[in-house]
Design a binder for these strands. Structure first.
Lengths: 199, 199
DNA sequence: TGAATTCGGAAATGATCATTTCCTATATGA
DNA sequence: TCATATAGGAAATGATCATTTCCGAATTCA
């Protein structure tokens, strides 16, 4: 049977579109630097509609954070699929993040980094989501190291746990430095140099 | 001749002490997350005294930023002096930052990272100071690579420019991940693994 | 068709914010 | 000693903030 429609007047806007705008603005200005009016302007919605859909400002952030994560994860997955072996996949991940850490998207910044810095110390829920995001990326890198060791593209003398965390540091640091723009080639060259730890 | 005292009523508080409190609170809560009342409470001063000494909220931040940089730089210098050669100095720098990226100071965070994320995109003056701070740390790391190549502790196949930037990514990333606490040993082991790029 | 429900939207609310003002206190310099 | 200048401190100011309220519109269910 087809799922029955919701009860009252149907929502006229796409919440995901609104969250995409929220992601941009929260990433660039931070949580406290963004007002509901800013969000209403960016989404072309009234504050009432935002409150009805997301409860409050923090609700908008939480939803935006989750969407940011899922969108970025999907894009990373396709980038990783390009790599033929563990080492190549690690280089693809580094290139993926370096690609986001320059120009417009570089200056906009990463929402995970932004929330880690601004809110993690005082908001346990945000802290947990940030920690989960970090743990997920760390795990991806660690598994790529292990896969590379299995396929012979990564040295077996490398500790996968420490290497996974090291690569996480790198990914996050790229986005911090990227806030004050650098040429793409420079970011990429430095990031890919990290593959030397795999020798 | 002894420098003559200033004209009016002498200031009763030590501005550097006030800035130390401002550094802590700005690092932890961010600029927009910190109110003048918060600063007045933390410094045991009235808002009037803060405004007389630092002009406005942004002036407090700017002064705090400069003080943070000079205090941290001095501590890094002494940490580096421990290293016998280029490689050891690089490991000392990594250990120095890893040491700040866990526990209480880890959760407090780095003011440079915080300002890069929150304000660099919209405040050109802050952006320039952040860029200068990054460039300074990058230069230190680059020069250590070059010194290591001269003393034989670092491979000459390494590009010092790219390596300097890579190490900067690492230092900043450490502070981001450190916001959601990790055990010191874990941070240190991962950070020091970066010395593999020097082989 | 009509009761129930949710949405869109504008205006109102009360809190908090950065900053200023005003007054008193304490110093210098002539 | 008195004019000048700056600090300390409390209270006032006006703007902005997040959130709520209220009302007309659009939809479902019986």
């Amino acid at each position: 049977m087809p799922k029955s429609r919701a009860r009252g007047r149907p929502r006229e806007f796409d919440p995901d579109r609104a969250l995409d705008a929220a992601i941009e603005i929260f990433s660039e200005r931070g949580y406290h630097g963004t007002s509901i009016t800013d969000l209403a302007d960016a989404t072309d919605l009234t504050t009432g509609s935002l409150y009805k859909a997301f409860t409050d400002k923090r609700g908008i952030l939480l939803a935006a954070f989750d969407r940011y994560r899922s969108v970025r994860s999907a894009k990373l997955e396709t980038a990783l699929a390009q790599g033929a072996n563990g080492r190549e996949k690690i280089k693809a991940a580094l290139a993926f993040h370096a690609g986001a850490a320059h120009g417009v998207s570089g200056r906009r910044g990463c929402l995970v980094v932004s929330m880690a810095n601004e809110l993690a110390a005082h908001d346990p829920v945000i802290a947990e989501r940030v920690a989960k995001a970090h743990a997920a990326n760390e795990a991806i890198m660690r598994e790529l190291v292990i896969a590379g060791q299995a396929d012979g593209s990564v040295s077996t003398s490398l500790d996968p746990v420490a290497a996974g965390l090291l690569l996480l540091f790198l990914l996050q640091g790229l986005r911090v430095v990227g806030k004050t723009s650098r040429p793409e080639a420079q970011m990429l060259a430095a990031a890919e140099l990290a593959s030397r730890i795999l020798d």
